[in-house]
Nucleic acid binder design. Structure first.
Lengths: 148, 148
DNA sequence: CTAAATGCAAAACGTTTGCATATAG
DNA sequence: CTATATGCAAACGTTTTGCATTTAG
């Protein structure tokens, strides 16, 4: 069963309806699996396929998909949210290096995180959301550019 | 030398001017040292002291203070930024547990973070900003409320 | 004296909402 | 057939900007 089919059946098994708009959005998300898309970016791609679609629908759909745990949502310093497929990709935990200059996201994973999550859980009774920790800073590329 | 005096002299030694508005903002920040204030919250307190002040000035001042490394800036999922004094408080690194339900911030510190920062730095050439890592999730209080 | 800072209002930004119309189940 | 979803435009809350006026250095 492909990722696409998997998501489609998740929607069908939920109380939400499977509309053509939602199908198209799933398709785009699967095709851009490796990227972290914002609502606006998704909308732009969508416009090329179906110009009638409204931006509000994109936001509503992303909300629903987040609710259905199809998507993970990462939020920036500038108030922009980016979305990423949750299914299949993470067999374990994964976390994000967020560059505050170019806004690129790198997904990383390491045992250290497990220790950290356990520590936070034990000491603070804090339940880490979706095992997602955000590390803000400057990425390799932007560091190099600074030194030109 | 008090935290207040320290900040004032940081401003004086910079290219920015020390205005009465900026002095008042420093005073409020020092008095609320233990809190993470938003621009709006700071503006509200400020209005009680000097009703003439404009919200734009608050934003501009917070930007400058961030630039001067007087403040650290933590941003939420809902696009609201909160500010916190950087000076004196952290002899070492410190990080944040951000509750996505009540939006409370807990400041934590632990050796595990140092290892993590080092790892990210070595493996990804990623320079962690102000040694600040954001861990999103649900805090103790909100967890309890869910179970009522 | 002059460059920088201020207050105000208007604009910008991503996002959400109200509503009439369309449609999946 | 009916509850849900859609597209549009208007509203939202936070933040930024333009501009004439004031002020710190």
């Amino acid at each position: 069963m492909s990722i696409y089919d998997n998501i489609i059946s998740t929607i069908q098994q939920s109380s939400y309806k499977l509309t053509p708009q939602r199908e198209t959005i799933v398709k785009i998300l699967v095709e851009n699996e490796s990227e972290h898309l914002s609502a606006e970016e998704l909308y732009f791609i969508l416009k090329g396929i179906n110009p009638e679609i409204g931006l509000a629908t994109v936001y509503r759909t992303l909300d629903i998909f987040y609710d259905l745990k199809i998507l993970e949502k990462i939020t920036f310093g500038n108030g922009i949210s980016k979305y990423h497929l949750r299914q299949k990709l993470d067999n374990g935990t994964h976390h994000h290096l967020i560059c505050t200059k170019c806004h690129n996201i790198t997904t990383i994973s390491n045992v250290i995180f497990n220790k950290l999550i356990q520590y936070v859980n034990n000491e603070y009774n804090f339940e880490v959301q979706d095992d997602t920790i955000a590390i803000y800073g400057t990425c390799k590329n932007c560091m190099n550019e600074e030194n030109i």
